[in-house]
């Protein structure tokens, strides 16, 4: 799909490209009519959308409400300020086929407070997540846990008689791996920020919406 639902007047032209051919319409007499293809229906995968939004009251509510009402399932949503005053950035991950996610992007773009929406799934990006994991620890296994943390490039941020809190940062899969690794010790609690992503290279979605 065209990654940018917000550029002026341009809708994804993947389908349009084929329209240049002047293939005649199928003859009506040639057997039963072909079934019309439904929009979408392609392979479902995880997509990452970046939305640059005005930091108005309720903007998070608008985004969340829209995704719910239009039947899109958000996997994760991370919101933060940007370097511009009054502008926030959302990183939304969701599952769907390309057409469905394109619909989500276009619907988001209808919101007045949304400045830009971009699907960066197919682009070269840095995608990082941070997790805090509170692991059950005893005198006998603490050393072992600390060793694992070190090997996993984690960081101990709190050490208590019966637990350790570990901070791990990295791509989502790496964090999944770490969690799987320490699960057997007993995870007391865990919190994850959800992915935040940024394109590699000098391109900047934020600069693209500078006012």
């Amino acid at each position: 799909m065209s990654a940018d639902a917000s550029s002026n007047g341009v809708v994804p032209e993947v389908a349009a490209a084929s329209a240049a051919s002047t293939s005649p319409a199928p003859a009506r007499s040639a057997g039963p009519p072909p079934a019309r293809a439904l929009p979408g229906g392609g392979e479902t995968r995880r997509h990452t959308l970046i939305a640059i939004v005005l930091d108005k009251p309720g903007v998070l509510n608008r985004v969340a409400s829209l995704m719910r009402a239009r039947n899109f399932n958000i996997d994760s949503l991370a919101v933060s300020r940007t370097d511009q005053p009054d502008v926030s950035r959302m990183t939304i991950t969701l599952h769907g086929d390309d057409v469905a996610v394109e619909q989500a992007a276009k619907q988001l773009y209808r919101l007045i407070d949304v400045l830009k929406v971009q699907d960066v799934t197919a682009e070269s990006v840095v995608a990082q997540e941070l997790a805090l994991v509170k692991i059950r620890a005893t005198d006998s296994n603490r050393g072992e846990i600390l060793k694992l943390v070190e090997l996993s490039k984690g960081r101990v941020v709190d050490l208590a008689p019966e637990s350790v809190v570990v901070e791990v940062t990295g791509p989502e899969a790496e964090i999944d791996g770490f969690v799987a690794l320490v699960r057997s010790y007993g995870i007391k609690e865990i919190v994850r920020t959800g992915s935040v992503v940024m394109s590699r290279g000098s391109n900047s979605i934020e600069e693209a919406v500078k006012r």
């Binding site: 809708v11 389908a15 329209a19 319409a25 072909p34 019309r36 619909q103 773009y109």
Partner: peptide, 28 residues
């Protein structure tokens, strides 16, 4: 699925989100 089975579709709309929402179109 059975709508206008022989037709290619040109869809003009002011709202990009309407295009490709309910039917796939050839010329948006």
């Amino acid at each position: 699925r059975t709508y206008a089975p022989y037709a290619r579709i040109v869809h003009v709309d002011i709202d990009p989100a309407e295009i490709g929402k309910n039917v796939a179109v050839e010329v948006p």
